[in-house]
Design a protein around this nucleic acid. Structure first.
Lengths: 203, 203
DNA sequence: CCTACCGATCGGTAGG
DNA sequence: CCTACCGATCGGTAGG
């Protein structure tokens, strides 16, 4: 049946819905930077005019907020599960790293954006606050694992936490989904290096 | 003698020389982002007018270029010495990591800027090219260390290189010179974690 | 009255 | 190093 068919005439291109516009926006924000990207750039990328963008979103900052929420919601789920989960702190820490890598890969555009904001506006400051909450939960997990005797105690736990998640977060700078490594391989390699080290014969 | 004394009247504040303006500019660029920082912002920060900035520099991009050159010159020295140096690849790799951390701490503002550029202009693209050259030399060093049998060979060397220097570079996101850790402590901790791992009893 | 837009232009501010 | 400006472009919105 051809009932409830789509509009006949080309009342607009194939159909840039809200999600498609957001994807294009986040992609541009990451390539050029949020401030260096104009709504005009975004419109040109999508082959529409500038006002067409404002049909879908109230403001440029609205686009940023939705992208940051996507990243933060995903990461919050992973970290909350790890903090509330069962098992040793060590096992939960390995697990949260593995899952964080998977989130970084699956939601790389929005996570990349999250890791680059500077707190210039209320939206950015709100996102930074949620990010600090995540960092605090992860630092707790590291402290617990050290207290359990599972991790080396000759380096301050807060320093361990910073370096460990600095390594995880650095993924967004170079990982390419079309490249050689899939998410699980990278996650496995990262966990192995972080816990057993690079030197030969540690495992 | 009071000869060649400074100008009598307040022909400007204490004396914003080129270096002082550059320092303030890099600081603002890092706090707000390069694009979000206006020359007017910089002038206000220094307590002068906007044209006063252009007395010291030809353009906003000029400020960026000088800062990026500072970071790149320092890192190039460290990496060149490591690549041409004597000793095993393993020893040279440990050494270049240690020295890189020291450069990141001593030149944090300019290195931070370097790690955040997106390649929007010719100046940024030129800096990214020099940065890729550094990354390539470091990746070579890791490959050599793996070939020597000094590093684990169950993870692709390029992946090792990315993760290792991702951890190093993440320093700029949180290190504070006025904080608890000095450069040498952080460098020691990072090298220990990277090579021996986080799990207890590896060393 | 809805949706998905367009051509033109608003008030302000950017780097220079 | 300041006052006084420029060409252009910004994010956002009018009527249709």
């Amino acid at each position: 049946m051809t009932a409830t068919s789509p509009p006949r005439r080309g009342r607009g291109r194939p159909g840039n819905d809200q999600a498609a516009v957001l994807r294009a926006a986040v992609d541009l924000f990451n390539r050029k930077g949020y401030d260096a990207t104009s709504i005009g750039d975004l419109a040109k990328e999508l082959g529409v005019t500038k006002p067409a963008i404002y049909h879908h979103f109230d403001s440029k900052e609205d686009l940023l907020r939705l992208a940051l929420d996507d990243a933060l919601d995903e990461l919050t789920t992973v970290v909350s599960n790890a903090s509330a989960g069962s098992g040793t702190a060590y096992a939960r820490l390995r697990d949260v790293i593995h899952r964080s890598v998977e989130v970084l890969v699956a939601h790389q555009p929005s996570v990349t954006l999250l890791l680059r904001i500077r707190g210039n506006t209320a939206v950015e400051q709100g996102a930074l606050e949620r990010r600090r909450w995540l960092d605090d939960r992860l630092a707790e997990l590291v402290r617990d694992a050290v207290a359990d005797g599972a991790l080396r105690d000759d380096v301050p736990p807060d320093l361990v936490s910073r370096l460990l998640f600095g390594m995880v977060n650095s993924l967004v700078e170079w990982y390419r989904p079309e490249g050689t490594y899939d998410a699980a391989s990278v996650a496995d390699a990262l966990v192995a290096i972080a816990f057993d080290g690079l030197a030969r014969g540690q495992a």
